[in-house]
């Protein structure tokens, strides 16, 4: 069956296998790099498109608020800023919860979308599927309503049995709104 083992053929076979396999993978990597990057870009574009009104182009920038850095996409249409899609990450119930929050220059939340989460399936994970919870963010005006869950005296409807997730989600939205407020202030100075 298998060949007899001696040092020479052992080293040769192992070395050759490693070489061949790395070559195959190197080639595969070069071939798939473009589609992988395209897929990642498509995902971000989709998230931005979902949380902002129609725009022509976006630019990726960052801003510091209270020592925390927020990355955001500034969306421009016809030379005018139509909104900011802010990447906002907080600690949820099961781990990091990261959102894309679209805010228009007047400080109103246009829409939100979940980038990644580690919440409990069927409970906190509903922040990504529960229609009632998700719909309330569309057009949420922080100057007219209070950005905290109803249990804490605010105007946000929490997901049933997932107060901690809802609080974290609200906090992420609030951070994004504050970041945009800071941006607008910077622009007018």
């Amino acid at each position: 069956m298998a060949a007899v083992s001696n040092l020479k053929n052992m080293v040769m076979v192992l070395g050759l296998t490693c070489l061949l396999c790395s070559a195959v993978l190197g080639g595969a990597y070069a071939l798939t790099k473009e589609p992988i990057d395209a897929a990642a870009k498509a995902k971000t574009d989709k998230a931005i498109g979902a949380v902002l009104p129609a725009f022509d182009e976006t630019s990726y920038e960052s801003v510091d608020v209270d020592g925390k850095t927020y990355n955001y996409y500034k969306a421009v249409k016809g030379g005018e800023t139509v909104g900011y899609a802010v990447e906002s990450s907080v600690v949820g119930f099961g781990g990091p919860l990261s959102l894309m929050v679209g805010v228009t220059p007047d400080g109103i939340v246009h829409n939100t979308s979940v980038l990644s989460h580690a919440e409990t399936p069927g409970l906190g994970a509903k922040c990504n599927t529960d229609a009632k919870f998700m719909a309330q963010w569309e057009g949420f005006d922080p100057s007219a309503k209070i950005l905290s869950v109803k249990k804490d005296g605010g105007d946000v409807d929490a997901i049933t049995a997932s107060t901690i997730t809802s609080r974290a989600y609200t906090e992420a939205v609030k951070n994004a709104v504050d970041a945009v407020k800071k941006l607008e202030e910077n622009d007018h100075e």
């Binding site: 060949a3 001696n6 053929n9 052992m10 076979v13 192992l14």
Partner: peptide
Amino acid sequence: APAVPDKVHIPVYIVV
């Protein structure tokens, strides 16, 4: 398989 020496067959298989 026929070309792989017995003593290194596991590492070779794992690499593959």
